[in-house]
């Protein structure tokens, strides 16, 4: 049954069901659970933009807190220190995130594989260092508090729908993007860079553009987060944010947008709900990391796909065997 949901009409049904679920959710959930889902949706945007790099293009970035964080910090600074409006803060947040990405990508793209991981990680430390120590600009340890939402999205529920609409739009945009010829090129790069190069593609440029898109949307998530949480502080941009984002992609399954969203929801839920149950939440989260990596490296969606493929193979095998049997039977009866 579950496998039919991943195919053709089943997929549409799932999408519709999910949309209906998200749309009616505020009617029956408490205000707290609505804010938790807001967190999930914002993180889903971050996870999807990371997935575009990790899952589709094969560039594992360990520093997405930097792009998320620079968007968040820029928006908070202009909105609190310079009293900018929401659209202005949004614009500045996105511009700064893209600018930071544009520079960092130049450095990071000189490496691949595990070196790429290392370099993105190191570059993210730079942003953390600035957030933490550049007191006059970032408020240092204090961070910047008091970011206010404009009145049209001030309420918990209206803000929820606002974020939902943006997340859905990002989902659709990414969906179109990965199915375009550009998206197929990305997958080609993931599979074999050298082959794509021989075929005449400018691999570097493709990677650079993907990095920029990813940084832009991570920045968008950062800006939304600031307007959700009303403050920024250094822990928002430390390495655990980068790891969390990667975990989300891995839990859901890299290379699938649905997986990224699912991963974001699961990880954020865990963070919010586990410590209601036990004081040992660190261990629980640790075990999630370890089990996901060991048992489900391709994530939930990947597992489902594998099983589906295996089932189909079995069915095909059975059919072949059945046909063979049948013909053997006929022969026998002759």
């Amino acid at each position: 049954m579950i496998f039919e949901l991943l195919r053709g009409r089943g997929r549409v049904a799932v999408a519709v069901a999910a949309l209906v679920f998200f749309a009616v959710y505020p009617w029956f959930a408490s205000r707290f659970m609505i804010t938790v889902l807001v967190q999930c949706l914002i993180m889903a945007i971050l996870a999807m933009s990371l997935d575009l790099m990790v899952g589709y293009t094969g560039m594992a970035s360990l520093g997405h807190a930097a792009y998320f964080g620079s968007g968040a910090y820029a928006a908070a600074i202009v909105s609190v220190t310079y009293k900018a409006s929401f659209p202005e803060a949004l614009a500045v947040g996105l511009i700064v995130a893209v600018a930071v990405t544009a520079v960092f990508a130049l450095v990071a793209l000189r490496a691949t594989g595990v070196y790429f991981l290392m370099i993105t990680f190191a570059l993210a430390m730079l942003i953390w260092g600035l957030a933490y120590r550049w007191n006059s600009m970032t408020g240092g340890e204090n961070g910047i508090a008091g970011v206010q939402r404009p009145s049209f999205i001030a309420g918990t529920t209206t803000f929820y729908y606002f974020v939902l609409a943006i997340a859905a739009a990002v989902f659709v945009f990414f969906g179109v993007l990965v199915r375009s010829s550009f998206g197929r090129t990305l997958v080609g790069i993931r599979e074999s860079e050298s082959r794509m190069r021989t075929l005449g593609y400018n691999v570097w440029l493709h990677k650079y553009i993907v990095f920029l898109i990813s940084g832009l949307f991570s920045g968008l998530a950062g800006v939304l987060w600031v307007f959700y949480d009303s403050l920024v502080a250094p822990p928002l941009v430390d390495l655990s944010t980068s790891f969390d984002a990667l975990l989300m992609v891995s839990v859901g399954g890299g290379g699938t947008l649905v997986g990224a969203v699912l991963g974001a929801v699961i990880v954020k839920m865990l963070e919010n709900l586990v410590n209601l149950v036990t004081d040992r939440w660190l261990t629980v989260v640790a075990l999630v990391y370890i089990t996901v990596v060991l048992l489900a490296p391709q994530g939930i969606i990947g597992l489902l796909r594998d099983l589906m493929a295996r089932r189909e193979m079995n069915r095909a095998a059975l059919e072949v065997a059945g046909r063979a049997n049948a013909s053997a039977g006929k022969e026998g009866s002759k």
Binding site: I2, S30, I266, L273, L295, I300
Partner: peptide, 20 residues
């Protein structure tokens, strides 16, 4: 692993609806 993860996912979706 699949069963485990599915249970996890279901629990979380249920949690979404039923929790506090």
């Amino acid at each position: 692993a699949l069963v485990g993860l599915t249970v996890l996912a279901t629990a979380l979706v249920l949690g979404l609806v039923l929790a506090p």
